[in-house]
Simulated scan of single mutants.
Amino acid sequence: MSLWPRQLKRSQLSIKRIITPFRLNSLKGFVSMFLVGTFLSVTLAACGGGNSGNSASENPAASPVAANKQNVELTLVSFAVTKAAHEAIIPKFVEKWKQEHNQTVSFKQSYGGSGSQTRAVIDGLEADIVHLALAGDTEKIQKAGLIEPGWEKEAPNNAIVSKSVAALVTRPDNPKGIKTWADLAKDDVKLITADPKTSGVARWNFLALWNSVIKTGGDEAKALDYVTKVYNNVPILARDAREATDAFFKQGQGDVLINYENEIILASQKGEKVTSIIPDVNISIDNPIAVVDKNVDKHGNREVAEAFVKYLYTPEAQQEFAKLGFRPVDETVANTKEIADKFPTVKTLGTVQDFGGWGEIDKKFFADGGIFDKIQAAKK
């Protein structure tokens, strides 16, 4: 939804509140109604000056501050493992925008655990754009009144801009013989993963574990027993995916690491010798993007923020995501031989929808007193 329909909707609500107390059987009421009508006419004229595809110069209401500035600043808040991708993509967007609009865009960037980033935005970090690990975190920002409902329809692919699957990383030559999810429950295996309370990646890891039982014919009781055994083998819960990766590679902790496939690819690119398995039964890890409506309207940079989100779906940007290990959401890019050869095929892929969506998932697994808390309380 572009800015002017939102402004019109808000103006209509304001007018309704103004009209309600007045009665037409008095001169005062008549004058009041006349003034309200005049206000409505001005509002409609301002909002209707162009369609939603117009540039800021054609439709000043689309970006009332940014359109008149030579320099524009955007604040991007994202989860930890996207940092390398955004650092490659942002300069390309900045150059493109400069060429097309003769305007310089600069970015403030913040990266961390998705849960922690979500709380920071709700608590006052004035993000213009949020790229988070899971839609459930974006929904929390919406519920806080910062993002308008329907955000997932404002971008292609239900606003999913990057995706991955879960990977198991072992020590060189795989001395513990890790082959499947089931091996993570063995008594002599130490697993490194992040904390679902602070990391969106870790919530995906948890779902991947649970999904591995359900998708192979197990029931809820078997899933609970298995996941409890696995978390008994976790010596320390990292704050986010990047910290988990560092604990495994740099600090030498654990026998196996569960993490995003893209993190494993990135570690390999940095020279780490990585032995990994992409299990045939897996979970589709979908990462959404959203404009933070309240903040972009305050900052007057909606047009630029929406343009950046749109740019992330271009083949050029999707190729950068793919280079750094994310499975592209653009089918044209995904179907190229180079990309197809890079990512192993997953035979059985679970989705968030299989679990009823993030609202149900959070309530069942991650809310205070939920299944994850019970598993932690029962640890040996």
Rank of each mutant, 00 (worst) to 15 (best):
V213F: 10
W358I: 05
G50C: 10
G50Y: 00
G150R: 09
G350F: 12
V234L: 10
K140L: 00
S212D: 01
D219I: 02
E338H: 07
N335T: 15
D286E: 09
R119C: 00
K163P: 00
K215Q: 10
V94A: 14
A67G: 12
K92C: 05
K294C: 00
K229W: 15
K179D: 13
V72S: 07
G350A: 14
S276T: 05
I289Q: 08
A85S: 10
R302A: 02
Y231M: 09
D368I: 15
A62S: 01
D123I: 03
K92T: 11
Q318N: 05
S55C: 06
N287R: 08
K215P: 05
N295C: 05
I339Y: 11
F249D: 06
V281D: 01
Q318F: 04
R23A: 13
K186W: 12
R10C: 02
D373I: 07
A290W: 05
Y231V: 04
E95K: 12
Q103P: 07
R327Y: 09
Q376T: 11
T345D: 14
V169A: 06
G50Q: 11
K92F: 10
P149I: 06
F30A: 15
L257Q: 00
L76E: 01
N233G: 12
G37D: 07
T180M: 01
A182P: 09
V304E: 04
A155Y: 14
G177N: 04
K153T: 11
A80N: 09
V352S: 12
G369S: 07
Q269L: 03
E272Q: 15
R17D: 08
D341S: 05
K337Y: 11
A67C: 14
K347D: 10
A144T: 01
M33W: 15
A307P: 00
A133T: 13
H131D: 07
K96A: 06
E306H: 09
P21C: 09
S116P: 04
P91N: 08
F34Y: 12
I264F: 05
S2W: 09
E316C: 03
N259S: 04
K96L: 12
N68E: 13
E126C: 07
K250V: 06
N102I: 06
L132D: 00
I339P: 10
D293M: 02
P60G: 03
Q318D: 12
Q376R: 08
G50S: 04
I147M: 02
I236P: 12
I147W: 00
L266T: 07
K380Q: 07
T198A: 05
A208M: 01
V130I: 07
Q99F: 06
S199K: 01
V352E: 10
H299G: 14
E320F: 07
P196L: 01
H299I: 05
E139A: 14
V256E: 00
I192D: 03
Q117Y: 02
W181L: 01
D187G: 07
I160A: 04
R239C: 09
T170L: 03
T38F: 09
A155W: 11
N54Q: 08
E95V: 13
